[in-house]
Design a protein around this nucleic acid. Structure first.
Lengths: 183, 183
DNA sequence: CCCTGATGAGACGTTCGTGTCTCATCAGGG
DNA sequence: CCCTGATGAGACACGAACGTCTCATCAGGG
């Protein structure tokens, strides 16, 4: 009988990923509960988004853990990362949009932690001579987010197949579009 | 005395790029006109966004023209394209967000025209052996938009310098992050 | 110099989403 | 089997933003 808070969150994430402006009422109906109950668990829309942010950060950090970014070569670690991130890509895209859409009162420190870990991966790749050094880790991180977002939207709209998600992103990010002999 | 419609549009674009949820009143004040006057020129918020969409498409197509995508090698054409697009990047990012945010009743055909031209560039590059063929032109196009958006936001937030915009995007898109001997 | 037309400021009614509250219902534990 | 606590449905008031309208003002052309 009691509502499964986490289940509601995941349903909300799925809906808001598709329609970022969904009403509290729509979120409630999507989760199969009443609007009043939704408010009982999340004080308001902002609280809901905050909870989603927490969820996204939690899952993203779990993905970072599973990907073992500091093992093997940086390129392989990056491959693992994108693979692990794929299920969270939609939620991630929503949260990023949400952040840059509304004035970011104060950013959750979780994002800084995540940024640091991803940047560190790129920096490691540079130090080990696997990545070029004329593109900053900050930009590579930013670009990775952008590509993940683009990939998520493209998959959602059916423009590309979900199974190609990891390949497309990693291949482009690592090798670029240019055809090279040594490939 | 008469309001310069195009000037209002550009001011609105600049504001909405920074704050996508800006009020009609805020848009009016930013343009230095009264809210009533704003309504006299644009029937409502939707009409304003539509007008911005027209503006963005117009400027983007102008950029495509100037870039002469069918001349020289595809990589060089791409460089020119990104250079020309830079001033419109912010508006473009706003419009893309706006489109995926709200249910796309019906997409302006201008986007299809632009997509076709950009895709054609990538396809040409593939046919001439300059671009790899395992990444579809559709995905490369999508990725280009994503990187432009990321670049625009990164510049806006001061995370990267505007002067690096073109270099970062083109270098990543063309060559990728991996360090290669032949570069 | 007057007259026309556009503008700015503000009032007003409407819509939409939110947040709160009440009340009847229902499930599950004791 | 009863009682407690959570839930769903709906009513309600509030606030934000929108779109419309009025009216005084002002610039510029005739």
């Amino acid at each position: 009988m009691t509502v499964d808070r986490d289940q509601v969150l995941r349903t909300a994430a799925a809906l808001l990923t598709r329609k970022a402006t969904a009403t509290m009422d729509e979120v409630a109906r999507a989760a199969g509960i009443g609007r009043a109950t939704l408010h009982r668990h999340f004080a308001g829309r902002e609280a809901l988004v905050r909870a989603l942010e927490e969820l996204g950060i939690r899952e993203l950090e779990a993905a970072l853990d599973t990907a073992r970014l500091d093992e093997d070569g940086a390129p392989d670690a990056l491959r693992r990362l994108v693979t692990e991130v794929e299920p969270v890509a939609g939620l991630l895209a929503f949260l990023v949009t949400e952040n840059q859409l509304f004035e970011t009162e104060q950013m959750n420190e979780g994002w800084a932690r995540i940024d640091a870990r991803v940047s560190a991966l790129f920096r490691r790749g540079q130090e080990q001579g696997e990545f070029r050094i004329d593109l900053t880790p900050a930009w590579l991180t930013e670009a990775l987010y952008g590509l993940i977002g683009s990939g998520a939207w493209a998959v959602q709209d059916g423009r590309v197949a979900a199974k190609d998600f990891q390949y497309m992103i990693v291949e482009l990010l690592l090798g670029g579009a240019r055809r090279s002999v040594e490939k």
